[in-house]
Amino acid sequence: SCPVAPASRSSQEVWESFSQCFTPAVKEVVEFAKSIPGFQTLSQHDQVMLLKSGTFQVLMVRFCSLFDPKERTVTFLNGQTYSLASLRALGMGSLLDAMFEFSEKLGSLGLEPDEMALFMAVVLVSADRSGIVEVGAVEQLQENLIKALRSLITSRRPDDSTLFPKLLLRLPDLRTLNNHHSDKLLAFRID
């Protein structure tokens, strides 16, 4: 529910309100992670490391539903719709372009909400491993989640053997998005 500002406000103020959007969204990913079966059996250190390296990618998947690739618009949860052009003023043009492209590919797979949630769990535990101490435990959790995702998808679409591989191919896309864009700058006013 991002209150990106009407035209009257300066781009700095727009930037601040856009930056504020991320705080609740990140907290929701942390709560989501804690609900993933097995995630809290990992060491606290490894939970924090996975979240630090995977949260941006999970957010990218979550934000997909806000993007309309055909109309090139973004509709925030408060109902405000913005064209790609108007959002370029925020200086996130390249990230937005990449997001439109990614959401088009992911959207075309037509996942159900529970499949999308399980995919986000896979995204999180597939995040960068540098800094992980008990790699074996994380690998085991990842394997279990991938198995669950595969059986959920194949049970619903027994005659479609291409969907699951296509879905896993989105993981490298997300890693690229993360490497290219997680260093975008945010700005917070300190009164």
Partner: peptide, 25 residues
């Protein structure tokens, strides 16, 4: 004058996660 703290998306995410886990310890 208003002062600003500028940080990357990644640092902002790390900051929130560290805070959350510290609070729930």
């Amino acid at each position: 004058p208003k002062t600003h703290r500028v940080m990357t998306l990644a640092d902002h995410i790390s900051h929130i996660i560290t805070q959350d886990f510290a609070r729930n310890q």
